[in-house]
Amino acid sequence: MTKKERAAYVDAELERRYPNPPIPLDHKDAYTLLVAVLLSAQCTDERVNKVTPDLWKLADEPEGMRKIPVDEIREVIRPCGLSPRKSQAIRDLSEILVVEHGSEVPASFEALEALPGVGHKTASVVMSQAFGHPSFPVDTHIHRLAQRWGLTNGKNVAQTEADCKRLFPKERWNHLHLQIIYYGREHCTARGCDGTVCPICTTLYPDRKRAKVTKKA
């Protein structure tokens, strides 16, 4: 298969398996999604979803959150890891949202990435899932799967994102990155598939005999 043929197969197969992929992080608006995505760095979505209900009891909007002491935020989010950094970022970005954005989450990459603790991937998730802007967030798992499927050379996350955007229709980006996440969790995990086990890997590369060594993000 050519790279375009591989991409077309992945697109069709994931749409068949996961036609309506839900957003994995529980949230009620753009602000709670932003905070949840920030918490998900080096943490599972499942754990974030267990922690955020207690966080929202402290505050679930910027005006309230900026008044919560950082130590209180840190104590609640401790199970998510990196709690000193994340708690400070949550407190600081809430302050900025109130002062500079009228307590609203801005719908632009530039403004989002200027917020404490918000990188390109987090901004991409918010732009995609909160505002419906075509985006293709790439985390380490998507980066790894794209390499196993021969869609990118794995140079870095930015290159993987650019390659995926070129290969897949723009109107599919928002759903597709979620579909890849769900497929990866179910079939192509870090320990469960090395490029020679799962249905997509074996269909795309039926003659692959050795594990696919992937580059880190």
Rank of each mutant, 00 (worst) to 15 (best):
E171P: 03
V125W: 02
G119S: 06
P116S: 07
V98G: 01
K121Q: 04
I142E: 00
E104A: 14
Q147S: 06
H141A: 09
M127P: 07
S108G: 14
A123E: 05
S124C: 10
H101M: 08
A146P: 05
M127G: 14
C164P: 06
D163W: 01
Q159A: 14
P134E: 12
D139Y: 03
P106S: 11
G132R: 05
K170I: 04
G117E: 08
V98Y: 04
H101D: 06
S103R: 02
R148E: 06
H120D: 13
E104H: 06
P137A: 10
A111Q: 09
P134T: 10
C164K: 00
A114L: 01
E100V: 09
T160H: 08
R172D: 14
K155F: 08
V125R: 00
K155I: 13
V99E: 15
D139W: 01
G154N: 09
A158E: 14
V98P: 01
G102A: 07
K155T: 15
N153V: 09
N153M: 12
Q129V: 08
V99G: 00
P137C: 05
S108C: 11
V126H: 03
G154V: 05
F136Q: 11
R148D: 08
L112M: 07
Q159T: 15
G102K: 03
R172E: 15
A114Q: 10
M127A: 13
A114I: 00
T152L: 02
V125A: 06
N156H: 08
A162E: 11
T152C: 00
Q129F: 13
H143Q: 03
G119K: 05
V157H: 00
S135Y: 01
M127K: 05
K121D: 11
S103N: 11
I142G: 05
G117W: 04
A158C: 02
D163I: 12
L167P: 07
E104Q: 14
G132H: 02
H141W: 04
M127E: 08
V118Q: 02
R172M: 13
T160P: 09
K170Y: 01
A158K: 13
P116R: 06
T160W: 03
V99S: 14
F168W: 03
P134Q: 12
E113I: 14
W149R: 02
Q159M: 09
G117K: 08
P134D: 10
L112C: 03
